[in-house]
Nucleic acid binder design. Structure first.
Lengths: 247, 247
DNA sequence: GTCAACACTTTGTCCTGACAAAGTGCAAGG
DNA sequence: CCTTGCACTTTGTCAGGACAAAGTGTTGAC
């Protein structure tokens, strides 16, 4: 009748980590390690709260956190169920560099252009800054596994982050933004496809007319400040976008 | 000093609509109508709660709701700020049909194949169902504005929703799923590009080798049950994906 | 004039308590 | 046998209070 059984959970009330987060993290561990049966039900939140020695609101908040991440589903009058693992997976706002590095593909960056200039109109509009605002504008050729993969054009307002050519050759743009505390929290992307021009094909080591993926993106930080505009071109034969959507 | 000024807000305590939601909706209206200055600060939550005659938790929940939707930003010790409108816009899990209908492009659907059959291995795996599970498998050619736009292959488990050929010819798949209460809440998509084969090009009214956008998707409902698998092909010259990401 | 300590404002966390609403299952009545 | 209604369980909503933590600005010492 009780459904799930919850093993010992140790909470540290002296820790600066919020209680509800400690509870949520512990629950998440148990679920991911498979100690809580998938599809099974959690104990009801009142008992759970009592047993862990926290108040019901705190327990609710912990559960709510996991519901938002897609790990749990609640139904009034029924209970809380554990969702099949396949469904989960948070939306990550990551950059190509991060993705490549994570999958062990050894990214390499070749800087083709690097200048500080007033933003062209369409870029200023995309960034939501006044026309003529100074941006760092650069074009990079990204290699993975020794082969060219993408041509990337980017603009970053100079007052958001002063970029140095050397940094960009050795690190991903998002990595640099994060390090500076200008963390991208929201992004608007348009993904399309077209045939490569002769020049593009030559740079990518592909043949003329080969299909390429196009992606233009504007990214904002948590305060709504635009931090980056990008217009990228990927070899379709070597790259595709994977993304998780939640309503 | 107070920053934003909040006009009269009428709350209906007899309504079944939760108080926090009434407050959130009203706030959202005021912001979207531009009555609250963008970039401006809200009153602090304690005063706000007092003035509206609700408790602080309720007020917090209303604000939290708008924070999650990207309309507000809060900083401890500072206050709550209204984010620039450009950044907002919720991720919508919509279908091509909905999108076209909304933008007034008059979608038309031509059914090329419609059968009930055991799911092929790779589709069964994508859906997370046992091999051989019965699915409705169909291929549609989607027109917009009189011209072909996409070739769409889809599989829907029969025990999720029994589909009829006639319905699919006149409605979008997502529309039908929603009407049946199997609402897609989460989806995993892979977007890529390649050159069209001769057969594909002929169907799409394009030339052989023309770039096409490919998209494969699995969608789940709120309980984690897979409701749809799709493998679509779009004319790159006429379609692109627009999406908003949040971390 | 500069810098550090302190006060103040504002959001974050956490508690207790109470009632409402929705789903489930059982039992009584037709 | 089927349906209706009631009881029970479980999550949802709401209130009020208390203290903590972080950011801002001011004041005072040097």
């Amino acid at each position: 009748m009780t459904g799930g059984f919850l093993p010992e959970v140790a909470l540290d009330r002296t820790s600066p980590v919020p209680l509800y987060f400690q509870v949520a993290t512990r629950l998440q561990q148990l679920i991911e390690d498979g100690e809580m049966p998938v599809g099974g039900r959690l104990e009801n939140e009142v008992d759970l709260a009592t047993r862990l020695g926290v108040s019901r609101p705190t327990m609710r908040r912990a559960i709510q956190y996991l519901v938002e991440r897609g790990m749990l589903v609640r139904k009034r009058g029924v209970g809380t169920q554990i969702v099949h693992p396949k469904v989960r997976r948070p939306v990550e706002l990551s950059s190509l560099y991060d993705d490549l590095a994570k999958s062990g593909q050894e990214p390499r960056t070749e800087m083709r252009l690097f200048e500080i200039r007033p933003a062209p109109d369409h870029i200023a509009e995309a960034l939501g800054v006044p026309e003529g605002t100074e941006v760092t504008w650069f074009e990079r050729l990204r290699y993975a596994g020794g082969e060219p993969l993408a041509i990337m054009h980017n603009a970053v307002p100079v007052d958001v982050l002063p970029l140095r050519r050397e940094d960009l050759e050795q690190h991903g743009l998002y990595e640099l933004l994060r390090a500076a505390g200008r963390i991208p929290r929201m992004a608007n992307q348009v993904v399309g496809a077209r045939a490569a021009t002769t020049a593009e094909a030559r740079m990518l080591g592909d043949s003329r007319g080969a299909p390429v993926l196009t992606m233009t993106r504007t990214a904002w930080d948590e305060s709504g400040r635009a931090v980056e505009y990008g217009s990228h071109l990927y070899r379709a034969s070597r790259y595709s976008f994977e993304l998780t959507l939640t309503s």
